[in-house]
Design a protein around this nucleic acid. Structure first.
Lengths: 117, 117
DNA sequence: GACATTGTGTAGTGAGTAGTACACAATACA
DNA sequence: TGTATTGTGTACTACTCACTACACAATGTC
């Protein structure tokens, strides 16, 4: 899997080709960190920022926040809260699903979402 | 919801009624922490211990590790890992399920486990 | 009465988290 | 050519996490 920093840098530079406001400095300001910090993060010299900043960064880059969070080893706090409310139930379900291929999980997601439950 | 410390203390003292080896000191030794630390944890003067110790504690107390972890605000690292591997899929699923009542989730768990997937 | 065991108080620690503040040389722009 | 903007280096900080080490008085046991 690709590193968090490398990925962010690549995506930011892609966005920059068509929008010069995607400099380290300006993106840093928009997500609320110091430029030097974002610079270090993008070079993997600093650990990924907090959940809040990552979500803001995902918004900037047009990426899925959950995916970007995952790259930083974090799980969105609202998902965590949902699991913590029914730990035994979710533990069983997730352990069951982790054995199954993507396709099967996807099918399940669809069926749950389209609501015959 | 009950506090982690209070719950552990109560459960330990229950076990102790029929087994004198369930003193703070001896349980602490079995799970690998200092007695003073376990004592503080049980009185909620210290934050809950690490995942590893909580799992050991659950084993001692005959409790579900996932439930005890949940009381400490933690999600088992194997569940986290499973989510991190397919973040978008699990995010969608969990957000869908959190709106649903226990019964519906339970039914889903059963159907998944009994394997027509 | 001696010895062991008990719970707990106090003090301190090393690693990780999540950053800031400021300075600097290189580059871009007008 | 001057001004602005850029990315990055260095140094530092406040906070939390997950504990240990040791001492003590009270209680239990032989």
């Amino acid at each position: 899997m690709q590193s968090f920093g490398r990925f962010v840098r690549r995506r930011r530079e892609e966005r920059r080709e068509s929008d010069s406001s995607f400099s380290v400095r300006q993106v840093a300001q928009r997500i609320g960190v110091e430029p030097s910090f974002l610079s270090k993060v993008e070079r993997d010299e600093a650990a990924p920022p907090s959940e809040e900043k990552i979500v803001a960064l995902a918004r900037e880059l047009g990426e899925d926040p959950d995916v970007l969070l995952a790259m930083s080893g974090k799980v969105s706090s609202d998902l965590k809260a949902a699991i913590l409310k029914r730990p035994a139930l979710f533990a069983t379900l997730i352990r069951e699903l982790k054995k199954m291929p993507d396709q099967a999980v996807l099918r399940l997601v669809r069926e749950v979402r389209d609501g015959q439950w």
